[in-house]
Lab assay of single mutants.
Amino acid sequence: MQRVNMIMAESPGLITICLLGYLLSAECTVFLDHENANKILNRPKRYNSGKLEEFVQGNLERECMEEKCSFEEAREVFENTERTTEFWKQYVDGDQCESNPCLNGGSCKDDINSYECWCPFGFEGKNCELDVTCNIKNGRCEQFCKNSADNKVVCSCTEGYRLAENQKSCEPAVPFPCGRVSVSQTSKLTRAETVFPDVDYVNSTEAETILDNITQSTQSFNDFTRVVGGEDAKPGQFPWQVVLNGKVDAFCGGSIVNEKWIVTAAHCVETGVKITVVAGEHNIEETEHTEQKRNVIRIIPHHNYNAAINKYNHDIALLELDEPLVLNSYVTPICIADKEYTNIFLKFGSGYVSGWGRVFHKGRSALVLQYLRVPLVDRATCLRSTKFTIYNNMFCAGFHEGGRDSCQGDSGGPHVTEVEGTSFLTGIISWGEECAMKGKYGIYTKVSRYVNWIKEKTKLT
């Protein structure tokens, strides 16, 4: 034993070699072989497995989906700052455009905790909710729209109204504003409101030439003092309507412009014939205590009207009353817009006519005020429907199939267009061939041609 100890002390290297040989010859039971080890760690190889990531292109799944990435790591994937920024906006807080917040056709661009709407022409605001041009839906104005110097929408209202708090709607500024039905039992019968379409306001006024200088022999019209197929109006439903009495009662109609003036057809009036105007009328054979009678003290036909040349060209006249009318729910003026808007309103496509005229061709006159909704007829169809001249200051309205029309005794009465609950004068009943005849239409004086003249002559002093 002493000898062994001496050998170990003198030859430590020998001992180490012996131990190493023993270990190498022993069977290893701690580690699995290569094949079995792979069965336990069965993990798919990654895209760049075996390579240094710093030297390969980034992978979106590896960089940002398996674990949260930084902007720089995302930049490695896209290799483009702009594309990385677009991805980053949604990656950080989701897609803010998912709810489609942009209105009126706006395009949404996502941002971090926010979004941006790219608005089409005519709109602005956070969600493109603000109209900035009158060309689109009248700028959301209830009545009139004008573009300011910086191309912003400025709404306005006709006389007797003021802008509401929203700067879009119009509200009454006087007790009985024009064009409004205020009798409670008839307010439910107000005709369907007309909503502004998209309009090209630059070209809204037709490029028409008034044929002022045409000389033409007097034409022989049949029954051209021209509501057939209409309905009984309720008291106060058309408070701007008046009836004219002269040699015979209810020979023509008219509309209240203001307390002192009536507008009617020029062919209705004769110099030297006494005319009485009755406002607030409903049943011409009954006294309903809503009527107001006034005498006409002055007749002003349009300066281009000449019955000797043509009885229905420039067929418009103004009547001055001896005493002002007292405005109330049964006696209310009709609204008159400017030339541009009167023309736009007419193009809405349908209007209402009213009167006490004959209820059928050569038949009896109506006792109760009649009204009828009539569609506008395109000019080409209008011209083809008659052998008589249709001037540019006239328009056609009615039904091709016949059966409904204005008729004798309705002449001078109103053709009105309702705009968001307020009625505007767009025409004056003038003439036609018979009444409600198939293929024939009622012919009306186009008020847009005469609004400046009306307003100039009827100013209240």
Results as ranks from 00 to 15, higher is better:
E456K: 06
G398T: 04
V30K: 15
G351P: 03
G421D: 07
G427L: 00
D410P: 13
Y330W: 11
C128W: 02
Q57N: 15
A380K: 14
A317H: 00
S350E: 15
E86I: 15
D212Y: 13
T271W: 06
I297R: 05
V377N: 02
E53S: 10
C117T: 02
F345E: 01
L24H: 03
W88C: 04
Y330R: 10
E76R: 15
E129D: 13
N48F: 05
Q90S: 15
S350L: 11
N36G: 13
K39R: 13
L383P: 03
R384I: 07
G351Y: 00
N42M: 09
L383S: 14
K247W: 06
C102L: 00
G125H: 02
I429F: 12
R3F: 12
Q90L: 07
V416L: 06
A173H: 09
G236L: 05
D110M: 15
E433F: 07
V331E: 00
E67N: 12
K362P: 11
M6C: 11
G363M: 11
Q90Y: 08
Q167W: 07
A9L: 14
I344K: 13
V451G: 04
G230W: 13
D150A: 10
Y450I: 01
L321G: 00
V451I: 10
V153K: 15
N104R: 05
I297P: 02
E171T: 08
G412K: 03
F348C: 10
G229R: 11
M437H: 12
Y47T: 15
G442F: 05
K311M: 08
I336P: 00
C69M: 04
L346Y: 06
R358F: 11
Y450H: 03
H34G: 08
L372Q: 14
E73V: 06
P375T: 10
S99E: 13
N42T: 14
I284T: 12
E433V: 05
S354K: 08
C252K: 00
W356F: 07
N306T: 03
S448I: 02
L32A: 15
P101W: 03
W240L: 00
L189G: 10
I40Y: 15
N313L: 10
R449K: 07
N393F: 04
N104E: 03
R379I: 11
D322M: 01
Y371C: 07
F31T: 15
N38H: 11
S184I: 13
L244F: 03
D249P: 02
E116F: 14
C155P: 00
V243S: 08
F196I: 14
Y22S: 09
E86W: 08
Y444Q: 01
N48W: 09
T215G: 06
R62H: 10
S11A: 15
G409N: 14
E288M: 05
W261S: 01
P101V: 06
P120Y: 05
K438M: 06
W118D: 10
D110A: 15
Q57R: 12
C134Y: 03
E159R: 05
A317C: 06
T85S: 06
E53M: 08
L319E: 00
L103N: 11
G351E: 02
I336S: 00
A265C: 03
T276Q: 07
A337H: 01
F424V: 01
K274L: 04
R62V: 08
C157H: 01
G398H: 03
F388P: 07
E208C: 07
V326G: 05
F221N: 11
Y330F: 15
F123D: 03
V278S: 08
L23F: 14
E10Y: 04
D249E: 03
N135L: 12
H314W: 08
Q237R: 07
A26K: 00
E159V: 07
Q167E: 06
N113R: 12
Q241P: 00
N295F: 03
W88H: 15
Q185F: 14
G363N: 08
A436G: 10
T264E: 01
C28I: 01
T264L: 02
V257I: 04
M65F: 13
T386F: 10
F348V: 15
I316W: 01
T381S: 05
P239N: 00
T158W: 02
H34N: 14
S11F: 15
H302E: 02
T85K: 06
E171S: 07
V368N: 06
D322K: 00
W356R: 10
M394I: 11
A436F: 07
E54A: 09
A173V: 12
K362I: 04
W88M: 15
W453E: 01
L41A: 15
T194S: 12
A266S: 03
E434K: 13
N203V: 07
C382K: 03
I17L: 12
V278G: 03
V183A: 13
G280Q: 02
K45A: 14
D338F: 03
K293S: 07
G272V: 02
P375H: 14
Q90N: 15
R364C: 05
Q185C: 06
G179N: 02
E76Q: 10
L321Y: 00
E165H: 12
E27C: 04
R358V: 06
K311G: 05
P177C: 03
N138V: 06
I284Q: 07
R404Q: 05
T276N: 09
C157G: 00
I7F: 10
L244T: 02
Y341L: 08
F221W: 08
H34A: 12
T426E: 00
S204P: 10
R404K: 01
E456C: 05
H267M: 03
F78C: 04
H303C: 03
D200K: 11
L383A: 15
S350N: 14
P414Q: 11
T422G: 01
L163V: 09
V353A: 08
E53A: 09
Y91C: 05
C335K: 00
L103W: 04
Q167I: 05
N147L: 09
E35S: 12
M394Q: 05
I454R: 00
L460K: 13
E73W: 04
V242H: 00
R294T: 01
V195F: 07
S217H: 07
N343A: 08
A317F: 00
E129H: 08
G246Y: 01
T381C: 06
T190D: 10
A250W: 06
L327C: 03
N203W: 06
L32F: 13
G254N: 01
T290P: 05
V277M: 03
I214N: 09
L318C: 03
L367P: 15
L367E: 14
G357Q: 11
D110V: 07
C268A: 00
V228I: 09
M6T: 13
V257P: 00
G355I: 04
T290I: 06
K152C: 05
V153W: 13
W356T: 05
K51S: 14
L163P: 04
C102W: 00
A436C: 07
C435M: 03
G412R: 04
C407G: 04
G351H: 05
C407L: 07
V273S: 03
A265N: 03
A192G: 12
R83A: 12
V195L: 12
T461K: 10
N166M: 02
S70G: 13
E116C: 06
N42V: 10
L425I: 04
F78V: 14
V30P: 13
C178L: 00
K459Q: 13
F121M: 08
N38I: 10
V419D: 01
C268H: 00
C435W: 03
H302V: 01
Y341G: 04
V296W: 01
I336Y: 02
C435N: 04
N135K: 14
T417R: 01
Y115A: 03
N283R: 09
N310C: 05
H361Q: 05
H267T: 04
F123E: 03
D405W: 08
S187Q: 09
H289D: 09
E323K: 08
S187H: 07
K457M: 12
N452R: 09
K347G: 12
E159Q: 07
E420W: 14
G357K: 12
Q370K: 07
